[in-house]
Structures are given as structure tokens and as C-alpha cells.
Design a protein around this nucleic acid. Structure first.
Lengths: 328, 328
DNA sequence: CAATTAATGGCAATCGGTTGCCACCCGGTT
DNA sequence: AACCGGGTGGCAACCGATTGCCATTAATTG
């Protein structure tokens, strides 16, 4: 089942077999068909490592996520997976456990075993990313770095929609519940929030940072209540769902006493209680686009990219966790 | 940054460098330390493909799931990932899209690029699995095949607990809401259900099969109501959550009019509405154990396994979707 | 009909490690 | 002094493809 077996069987040299399979126009039709038939019959599958060793192409892409159990990534993983399979590539999944150090280490380790990497929510400093991008094709997700192509979900725009929504419901005091400080998206959302509030002559409060897990939601909920705000916009849905649970525990009515708006519209946002008003992000699409950009980049290496960054729109999905501001 | 660079730098042969790094006791301490120091300094990372080509070991394990967006797999992926990283191995994630044919094809394709595979919820017939297991180290999850090591979550036992729970609440008419017929676990749960019911002189109804998605939940809910059962045990939580939504839509009170028990305790089961009574499965642990078994198997290839299959216990977690049977 | 060119296929080097085998050195035995 | 054996390290083959270069042959053209 190696290229040599096929060569022996068809009476040609191994190099000819290789060409017949990977550069068909380089060999005579008759020969080619004979070889291809033999390959099919023997159920030949080229050895990936051998191919990688000589050609440098591994047909594998690494996807780095900060936490494989975060539902946000499910969609991303799936989208990436789909697009990769379509191109015949494999997906190496790497969980960086939210550690910049580990991320850097693992990146360094797989550097030679993949054709490129997709960094979802990288915790690495900008400079490090630039260095890495210089020696390895990189596409980031939700992270903007000069000279590194990226797909970013336009949640800042969504945050503005959320603010409009809340303000129109009479809310005047709205707080931002922040996520990890090392998250680029976190800062982007906070900036958008301040801008949107300022447009109405309002000032946003900010609490956090909090970890992105449901348990962090409890402490976030308490902090949110302390601000006296009548509404909170959270860094992501995981946090929002945690907050909803804690508020229910404390007997605080949502949205009667306080409104909560999440971000991403992950699995669960539609069936938690109350169903979460949130920014719906095209996560799966983001995964597909990231892969497309990467593969495209691989095909035209030396060239400068036409579009360095793709912005994906979000929209506000109104459910039951947001409502009119309480009368005071 | 290849082995040769280090060899040149330290003035030894490449083979010595190789040994110094992978079989340290085979080379003199002085030499070894000099080489290791140089390797560290140059930030040397061995080329995976080259190593794999000559040694046959790729230090990569493939995890096949039937649908990467199914929350059940999140925990599995994470557990596997953790254990693999600890061993310095990489994780190749493969989504078989619930197709036996695709599963077989992809398995065949990666065969040579991985040291072993973990098949989570394989859709392949037993015979095919045996063939594959003979030519490639395999560990299955929730699937029992002779001579193939496996980790199975003891949900049949859990199903019995669920039946006891429901019967003690006065339910006499309980239906099983079935998942995909190709799922081994599905049949195992159904058998357990019938056995448990029979113990009380009762007969279980069965509806389905249904796909495992929340949208399938709608049709499942209607079918469940048609049976006239006062309680339903579902193949998995995804289906259960879908059912809860549909019942809410139709104005059916849960658990007032009908009780619903899920299976797996996935993300979301605790905060859906009402929170789902379900069989809590040690999913992450299953992932870890599967990897351990596989790596263990790899280390002692020729030998016969001590334990071919590991059974992981489940327990019933009672929340608010189950309650006393309605009085008629 | 000679000459130029295009199409085709083989040779052999190469990618970067791994590993069996052998040679050498050195201290310890008899 | 001859011998033995363990500890070290080098040589070279090998894993399975890819690819640059060249030789052969066939086709085209003036």
C-alpha cells in the first residue's frame, strides 16, 4: 500500500506514480489511468507524514481555543471542521487552557506539523502574534493585529444595538460586565458600550473582570446589583447565564428589576430562564471563513492579501431577559 | 533547528543527538548534557513527520465524534484533550456527521497518521469495527464490541434508577423516547428500561426513533403525548430539552401533567426550564479514561489487555422536570 | 530529411529523524 | 600479555513520498 507497491504492480517508477496522483497532467493519459486504477483497487492512501516531509505540506490546520468546553467554540470548531474537510484537510484541536504561556509553547511545538493555525481568542500579546505570523500562516478570530489576517465578529456594533434597545426601554444606568482583561474582544465591547452610551449623554458603569464560566456569574451578579444599574450588558452568554441563575437565587426579577443582555447567542441562550436577550453572532460562519482565509493564504503565499480582515455582522436577538426599566 | 544542526554544533553524529534526546541512557552523561543544552538553547523541536516516518509513532490520536456541536462531546473532547496533553500527544478531531460511510472513509484515511483512535458513538457495524480494531489501536466510547477495548457509561443502570424514581412517584405508564437506531447506547437504554419496568409488572412504551437535535424534540414531544404516558425517559438531554420547549409551547405543564427525564446531564440541563431531571454521566472522565486505555494499549502492544472494558457509573440527578404522576 | 521542440518517464537526491550493527576504547581478569 | 565485556558513538540504511534534472522518444516544422 505504498507508492512503490503501485509502481511495481503497474511497471513504472515510483516517481511516475507520484505524479500520476498529484500532478495528473504531467503523465500520459494511458499510464495515468492505469496507475489510478491500481491505486483505487489497492485502496491506496498516501502516507501523510512522508508527503509532509518532502513537500512541506501537512494538510493539517491547528485550531487553538482557550477552553474547549466553552460552548462558543462548538460552533467555531464545527464551522472550521466543515470547511477543512471540504478541502481534504485535517483539524488539530488545541486547548490553551486560557494561558498565554501554554498557548505560545504549544504553538511553537506544532509549528512544523501544520500548514497554518487559527487562533480563536488568543491571549498572546500583539508583538508575539506578529512574530508567530511571520513564520507561520495565521488567521485570528476576534482579534485584530496589524498584518495578521483575521475574522472578527462585529460585536461592538451589536453592543451599540443592545444599548439602543435598552435606552429605548427607558434604561439610563447600564453596566458592562467585563470578561478576561487579556481578551481583545472584551476591550472592544467595552469601548463600543461607552461610545453608544455617550451618544445619549450617559455613562456606562463597568464591573469585573470576571472569568468566563457560569460560576463567575454568581459574583458578577452581585457586583452588577451593587452598581445600582437597571441593566447589564455582559461580555458573553456564559457569564450572562450564570448571572441569571444567581439573580433567580436571590429572588431578583429579570427583567422586572434588572435587564440582562448577553453576547454570542450560544447553545442554551434560547432555553435558559428567562430566555436571554443577546447578540447573535455567526459563529459557525466565522469558523468557515477563518479556514477559507487560511487556505486561500496558503495557496498564494508570497502575495499580499486582498482582504486582511473580514468583519462579520451581528444582530440583537430580543428574548425575555430584557424589558422596560423599573419605575423608581 | 534540525537534529543535524545540533550535531554540527556539538561535534557529534546526528544519531547520537537523536539518542541523547529520546533514549538518554544510551549515551554518556557528559555528551548527553552538552547535547541537551544545545537543543534547549536552539529551541529545538523535533519534526513530527520525520519522526513518524521512521519510527511509525505519530504521537497523535484521533477522536471521532458523530457531531461536533453536540454538547455531549464537549466534555469528552476536553477530557481526552487533557489526558493527551499530559502525555505530550496531539488530538485530531474528526466529525463523522453521523454517517457510517463517512466514518469508515475518514478512519481509513487517517489510519496511518495516528497512533490510535477513539470512537465516540460509532455508527459502524460490529464487524467493520472488528476489522478496524485489528489493524489499528481502537478504544470505543459507549459501544461494546468483542475484542475491542471500550469505556462505556453505565446509563442502563441509570435508566433503572430513573424508572425507580418515576415509579415511586406513582407513574405507571412511562415511555422511552428513542434516539438513532444506529446508536448502540440507544438500544442498551431501551433494554434497561424494559427490564426495569418489567420488575414492577409494567410495560414500557416506545416512540421514535428521533434525531438527536432540539428540533427533533418537537415531534418527539407530540409523539410522547400521544402515547398517553405520564412520563418519558429520553435517549439524551438534547432531545429532552427540545421536548420541554415544545411542551411549554403547547401549554403542557411539566412535571404537573407529564414528567421528563433526560440522559447525560449536558451543559444546559441544569438551567433549562424547568431544570431537567437527568442521568448524570461522567463524560469528561470518560474522555480521560478512553485516552488512558489507548495510550496504555500502545505501550504494551502485543500483550492482551488486563481490562478490556471500563464501566463508568452514572447517577440520577433530580431536578424539576419530574414529579408525582397526575391524578386521573 | 534534418533539426528543433514537446511530451513522457526514470534516476537519484532530499526531507529529518530512528535504529541495527559494528568499531573502538578502557578497565578489569586470568 | 592476551582476553573479555560493557559503555559509547558513528555509519548507513530506511521510512514513503516529492521533485529537479536528464534521457528517450515522438511530433512538428522549415
Amino acid at each position: 500500500m505504498t507508492i512503490n507497491d503501485i509502481a511495481a504492480l503497474t511497471g513504472v517508477a515510483a516517481s511516475t506514480v507520484s505524479r500520476a496522483l498529484s500532478r495528473p497532467d504531467r503523465v500520459n493519459r494511458i499510464t495515468r489511468e492505469r496507475i489510478q486504477a491500481a491505486a483505487r483497487e489497492l485502496n491506496y492512501v498516501p502516507n501523510t507524514q512522508a508527503r509532509a516531509l518532502s513537500s512541506g505540506r501537512t494538510e493539517t490546520v491547528a485550531l487553538l481555543v482557550s477552553d474547549a468546553t466553552n460552548p462558543f467554540y462548538f460552533g467555531l470548531i464545527r464551522g472550521a471542521q466543515q470547511q477543512l474537510r471540504a478541502a481534504g484537510h485535517a483539524l488539530l484541536l488545541i486547548d490553551t487552557e486560557d494561558s498565554a504561556e501554554l498557548e505560545n509553547h504549544l504553538l511553537h511545538k506544532v509549528r512544523r506539523s501544520v500548514d497554518g493555525v487559527i487562533l480563536a481568542a488568543s491571549r498572546l500579546p500583539e508583538q508575539t502574534l506578529s512574530v508567530i505570523a511571520a513564520e507561520l500562516p495565521v488567521v485570528t478570530v476576534n482579534r485584530n493585529v496589524p498584518r495578521v489576517r483575521s475574522v472578527v465578529i462585529d460585536s461592538p456594533d451589536g453592543v451599540m444595538q443592545a444599548v439602543e434597545h435598552l435606552v429605548s426601554l427607558g434604561h439610563r444606568s447600564i453596566a458592562y460586565v467585563a470578561g478576561p482583561p487579556s481578551s481583545w474582544a472584551n476591550e472592544a465591547r467595552w469601548r463600543a458600550m461607552r461610545t453608544a452610551m455617550a451618544r445619549h449623554g450617559l455613562t456606562a458603569a463597568r464591573v469585573g473582570p470576571f472569568g468566563v464560566s457560569r460560576s463567575s456569574g454568581s459574583v458578577a451578579a452581585d457586583a452588577l446589583l451593587n452598581t445600582g444599574a437597571t441593566a447589564g450588558v455582559t461580555f458573553n452568554d456564559l457569564l450572562a447565564i450564570g448571572i441569571l441563575r444567581r439573580l433567580a437565587e436571590r429572588g431578583v426579577d429579570v427583567p422586572g428589576e434588572i435587564s440582562v443582555v448577553g453576547c454570542d447567542d450560544i447553545f442554551g441562550a434560547d432555553f435558559c430562564s428567562p430566555p436571554l436577550t443577546t447578540l447573535t453572532a455567526p459563529i459557525e460562519q466565522a469558523g468557515r471563513v477563518a479556514v477559507s482565509m487560511l487556505l486561500d493564504h496558503l495557496e498564494h503565499l508570497g502575495e499580499t492579501a486582498s482582504r486582511q480582515t473580514v468583519l462579520l455582522p451581528t444582530h440583537l436577538t430580543i428574548r425575555q431577559s430584557s424589558g422596560p426599566a423599573p419605575r423608581r
